[in-house]
Amino acid sequence: MNITLRAWRQAGPSDEGGFETYQVSDVSSDMSFLEMLDVLNERLTLEGLEPIAFDSDCREGICGACGVMINGRAHGPQAATATCQLHMRSFEDGDTITVEPWRAAAFAVIRDLVVDRSAFDRIIEAGGFITVATGSAPEANLTPVPKETAETAFDAAACIGCGACVAACPNSAAQLFTAAKASHLSLLPQGGAERYVRTERMVDTMERFFGSCTNHGECEAACPKQISIDFIAMMNRDYVKAKVKNRGNA
């Protein structure tokens, strides 16, 4: 396959940046999208040019490091797929592919396709954890968890924190990420104890960085883990309850 790649190049956070066009020839349809970028970067390096910077780590769709906007879709055209698991067979020979970084005020571009997602870390720090005393692990069977509850919590826990929900949202809202991270703890007995404090803190922190949900549903469509916007509704309900239940400790 021969591909024309329009890639966003930006030397640093304060650089204006712009699209550069590259011809990538002899691309195998079995290559992943990132491998196609690797091939191009190899050539750029040999030519003495700066390779295109992009994030990646596990390359098996479970770490959440990769993620770029491909032809206007977060993680590209294939549903429920992270960029690393997207293969070139999803494109046609001779296609022009536009690739650009996630865009949101809270996701500053560091270089080329790499953005700073540390606003997500601020949300996790605010409540994405369980406060437990350290010591020997308790007997697991002492805390029964109904299978359905465990399954729902796991659906939320599938979030890899890639940021596609924010990137796909016309409002740059981080509702799906925050809801997934809050729900997977709050649904389970161990995390349930801090449910309302967690929700209030995480939502308040989220709103310092991100926009507000208008229920377009773009995040759910872009999510490589197909996390449902039902979790957003759950978070909204918990937030209202939190305002009644929490007594100033949030």
Binding site: E100, R103, A104, A106, P170, N171
Partner: peptide, 11 residues
């Protein structure tokens, strides 16, 4: 709020 939070895509 959403205008402040959003950055437009160039492509």
């Amino acid at each position: 709020l959403n205008r402040r939070a959003n950055t437009a895509y160039r492509g």
